[in-house]
Amino acid sequence: MELKCLKERCSANLQKYYESKGHQKKQIQSGGFQDLRRDLQAVIGTRANINIAQIENYGGETFLSEELAIVILQDTKHAFERCQLLSKPNERAANATQILDRLINSLLIEHVDYAVELGLQAIPVVEGTKNPPVVYFFTIVYQANNITHLVEKQFMDLVVPLVENTQKYNDCLQKKKFVLEDTERKINTGLDRCLNAVTTWVKLYLQSEQKKSDFKPDTDDFDTVASPACKSVLNYVSGMIKEINTTLDGNNVSAVLQELGLRLHRVVYDHMLQFQYNTAGAMVAICDLNEYRSCCKQMGPLVTELFETLHALCNLLLVKPENLQQVCSEDSLVNLDKSVLHNFIQLRSDFKVQKQNIFLRS
């Protein structure tokens, strides 16, 4: 009777919540086929102007509610308390395990995991440069973590005392662990997709907005400020950094920021290798790198070091040919592979003319 009433109350509260959002719960299609759709969307979506992956962001709705979680947890709390008072000693652990099963199924699977699955499918596939991707998944992670912490607290406060020193204890631990690890795996997949969306847009935007003539201008008359493309990119990236700092917690913040920084560095590095630079163009590149360095200091020491090194590499585009050997021997560059130095030096517009003067000794 206890379990039947608890199940009915949980189901009713879940249904009431989704009805309040005007949402009919869906059968989630995840895995290989849906991932293939996303890949196809990324490849041909722009050209065909069709939504192959059927991506819908629900206007930013996360379909997660801490208020609903508290209602369900209040019901299970009372159920655990009655279990403690009314169960026979030899049945107490088994009864508590069944209540926990209902809590896990109703709150963690039917609510949290469902929202994470929806959020995964709502992460945008970047198809062009017109608008930067709007990412709501970080908010889903934030709310999912808050609800999970509430469940963990009830588990420690109410479940453990009822099942410890019984064979049900490990069963309860494993059930909770299995569900939470599965959700965590999906969250990690989502975070990876978010970072991919951000850096893919940055890559496409820089390719679209920065031309060869920007770094090889015909005149030395230029502003010693970052390019408009760089400013637009960093305005967007700064917003993402703020979002990550606000919605993630603990080590997740530093880990995700570092990964974003590493991917951003790779995009900027590869982008720079596409151009040739005269003196004026090198100054433009250095101005951009100053801004990238400043922004990416928030992403941890490894990312900071990478952008410092990239800034030092940009100096190879600017110094006089006879000073290149000296610059390459400075602390910021001395440990780099010679091929990296050569790749950058070859981007100089005077490389072919001055090749004998600027060729580095192995």
Rank of each mutant, 00 (worst) to 15 (best):
K77C: 14
T139C: 00
T148L: 13
D171F: 09
Q174V: 14
V179D: 04
A79M: 11
D75H: 11
E66I: 13
V160C: 04
I140T: 12
K130P: 00
T129P: 01
V125S: 09
E127H: 06
L150N: 05
E67P: 00
D75Q: 06
E181V: 06
L173P: 03
L73Q: 02
E152F: 08
C83T: 15
C83V: 11
K153E: 07
Q174D: 12
V71R: 14
D171I: 15
M156Q: 13
Q121T: 10
P89Q: 10
T183L: 09
P161K: 10
R92A: 04
L158C: 08
E164G: 04
L120Q: 14
S87Y: 01
L108T: 14
K175P: 01
N90L: 05
V141S: 05
D113M: 12
D182S: 15
S87I: 02
L73Y: 03
N105V: 03
E181C: 10
G119S: 03
R185K: 12
C194Q: 04
L150F: 09
K130M: 09
G190F: 08
T76H: 00
N95A: 11
G190T: 07
T183G: 06
S87M: 02
N131I: 08
L173R: 14
F138K: 01
R193Y: 07
E110D: 15
N145G: 07
T189W: 08
C194T: 05
K77I: 05
T166W: 01
I187Q: 08
T166F: 02
N90V: 04
T166P: 09
P89W: 02
L191S: 08
F137S: 04
L86C: 08
L85D: 14
E117Q: 15
A122R: 00
N146M: 03
Q167V: 14
L107I: 09
A115L: 06
A94G: 05
V151E: 02
R185Y: 06
T148M: 06
I187R: 08
V112C: 13
R82T: 06
V116H: 01
E110F: 09
N90W: 10
I99N: 01
Q121P: 00
D75F: 03
K176R: 15
K176Y: 12
Q74L: 07
Q98F: 04
F137P: 01
E91H: 10
N188I: 00
P132M: 03
V159Y: 03
V135K: 02
K177V: 05
K176A: 08
Q84G: 05
R102Q: 13
Y169Q: 15
N105Y: 05
L68S: 06
L180M: 13
Q121K: 12
I70P: 00
P133H: 06
D157L: 05
A144D: 04
Y142T: 00
L180R: 10
L68E: 03
K88D: 08
Q98I: 05
R185Q: 15
E181P: 00
D157Y: 00
E181R: 13
P133S: 11
K153W: 02
N188R: 14
